[in-house]
């Protein structure tokens, strides 16, 4: 992760212009960083304020730290916020596990197992990438509703597991996986299945972590599909619940912002812990994708 650029700042030949340039650089990047952090500040400030503080004429920099807003939100009988958080967690976790399992196996099969029609199968997968998933929500809804999966976890999770794009990314990754490792495993008498689980997966954990992070984030943040499928409030995800707050006049400002803060919290944690792999993964695959 370190720069390849030489540490010119320490060199004796560099003079005032460089110091000024550096100061300018750091000022510019700090201003940009403050602007990027501003929305996070607003969520925290508003979520710990009272309504009069939020809507008051005079802008208050710091809230009065109403920690009671948290319990007020979860005790609110008009919205079952805890339930929607639970739904989102179940959906995001199952989607992550399922997608990784199914798409990584398929990606490996396409990349590494010799089969005379493998190319044709791969083109069929590629073709699905041309159709944007969001555009197919009408036909997918039609299918899921005729299966009777409206308002169920099945309907929310299963149709999203078969991501052509994730399979494609795994295939690209496995194409670059060192063949020697697998060959050694084959010599040791492992079949494809054994070699995959004992050699390939344990040596690809970085890439799996990156894909897991991406899948978890997109599962947690998904909106259109849960909106279409989760029609009963008991099957709402946290995003659908937040969206309903915006149109629902009975919910208070401080509760809306507390809900937003809590909905973002798990992701910020996931993000901060797994960022390294995420950045690597995007850098490896994003350009090719």
């Amino acid at each position: 992760m370190t720069t390849t650029a030489p540490q010119v700042g320490k060199e004796p030949g560099k003079k005032r212009g460089d110091v000024l340039g550096n100061a300018g650089l750091y000022i510019a990047v700090s201003v940009a960083a403050l602007l990027f952090l501003l929305p996070f500040y607003l969520i925290l400030r508003n979520s710990l304020s009272t309504d009069p503080e939020i809507t008051g004429e005079n802008w208050k920099l710091l809230p009065s730290f109403q920690w009671g807003n948290i319990s007020e939100l979860f005790d609110d009988p008009t919205v079952d916020f805890a339930r929607s958080m639970w739904n989102s967690m179940v959906i995001a976790v199952s989607m992550t596990v399922g997608t990784l399992l199914i798409c990584s196996l398929a990606g490996y099969g396409l990349a590494r197992i010799p089969y005379k029609h493998a190319n044709k199968v791969f083109y069929a997968v590629l073709a699905t990438l041309m159709v944007p998933t969001a555009v197919t929500f009408v036909p997918s809804f039609v299918l899921v509703s005729s299966l009777g999966w409206i308002d169920t976890y099945r309907g929310l999770i299963i149709p999203g597991l078969f991501s052509g794009f994730t399979c494609f990314l795994f295939r690209q990754y496995f194409l670059g996986f060192p063949k020697e490792l697998e060959e050694a495993a084959r010599v040791d008498g492992l079949g494809y299945w054994g070699a995959y689980w004992r050699i390939v997966v344990p040596n690809s954990l970085n890439f799996f972590a990156a894909m897991a992070t991406i899948t978890f984030i997109s599962g947690w943040n998904a909106f259109l599909w849960p909106l279409v499928i989760g029609q009963d409030p008991s099957s709402w995800t946290v995003q659908v619940a937040l969206s309903s707050f915006m149109t629902n006049q009975t919910v208070n400002f401080h509760l809306i912002f507390m809900a937003t803060a809590i909905s973002i919290l798990p992701l910020v944690f996931v993000f901060l812990f797994l960022q390294r792999w995420l950045v690597q993964g995007i850098a490896q695959t994003g350009i090719k994708g």
Partner: peptide, 27 residues
């Protein structure tokens, strides 16, 4: 265990069945 064709379908089968049902059928 070592048969490539069998293993190809073993690895890609679950994905392809799902893709057929949840992507191709709707389209």
């Amino acid at each position: 265990r070592g048969n490539p064709t069998f293993n190809f379908w073993l690895f890609t089968g679950p994905f392809l069945v799902g893709l057929a049902i949840f992507v191709f059928v709707p389209i």
